[in-house]
Amino acid sequence: MELLLGQVFNGFSVASLYLLAALGLALSFGLMRVINMAHGEMLMIGGYLAYLTLQVVPGPWRLVAALPVAFVGAALFGALIHVVLIRRLSARPLDTLLATWGLSLILQQGARSLFGAIGVEVTAPAWLDGGISVLGIELPAVRLFIIGVAIAVLAGLALLLSRTRIGLLVRAVNQDRMMAAATGIDAGRVDLVVFALGTGIAGLAGVMLALLGPVTPTVGQSYIVPAFLVVVMGGLGSIRGTVAAAVILGLVGSLAQISVDASVAQVLMLVFVILFIQIRPEGVVANKSRALDV
């Protein structure tokens, strides 16, 4: 029982990471129908930025300083990628996959040249040591912090989309790009902002990864494939669907680990997604759309 509860908690904390990694992918995919294969490297950049911040900033609360640094750094990087690469390829989703994968190779090797292949350690601050005990299971503070950050990001995003002007523009372009453009909305600008926002969130995810283990040039790779599966399962352009898919996959992965090892659990996640497609090919949250895709 304790094992089960522990794995459920673990599932939620892994799901939080999947969600932070997948939100940016899902936002851009909904809006532009493209997937950025270098998204995993945005996590990596966030991780290294956290490491650098902790080198420079003193004091116990320096982790809090690392969050905005990682967010802004990764967002700027994302904006650059969008301007240089994504925008040029926006009508060719499969080519975008390939080009951004090339970029991911370059970024990984760049990190290897700058920081070495071994990886750097980020020590979690003292206030994240220990944990609390609930129902006889020990909940590590780091994991609680990660879940908290994911919830905060989600709440912030929901506020942004529902209450702000940019949120309104995003929803307009998401609904009907041509119509939005016809009413004078600069859809390209909206794409850029959303893309940068998404990579910024990935940067935050990178800080979370840095708390769990060393930051290596390939640190993003271990979370990005599950994040892709979250996007596949989530349903086009739906944040609710992305959240649900992240939680489901996080739980499937960690509950599977009660009886099988981690690598088989990964296979089971894939099998689960394929089975899921049989039942709901349109994703967890289906947007019945009239958009013609003939």
């Binding site: 995919f29 997937i35 494939v225 892709f228 596949v232 894939l270 997604v273």
Partner: peptide, 20 residues
């Protein structure tokens, strides 16, 4: 299910196979 979705699923397949 096709296009980008298919590409992503095949990548997950490659990862799963190598890990196994």
């Amino acid at each position: 299910v096709g296009g980008t979705y298919f590409a992503l699923i095949t990548q997950a397949l490659a990862l799963a196979f190598a890990t196994l």
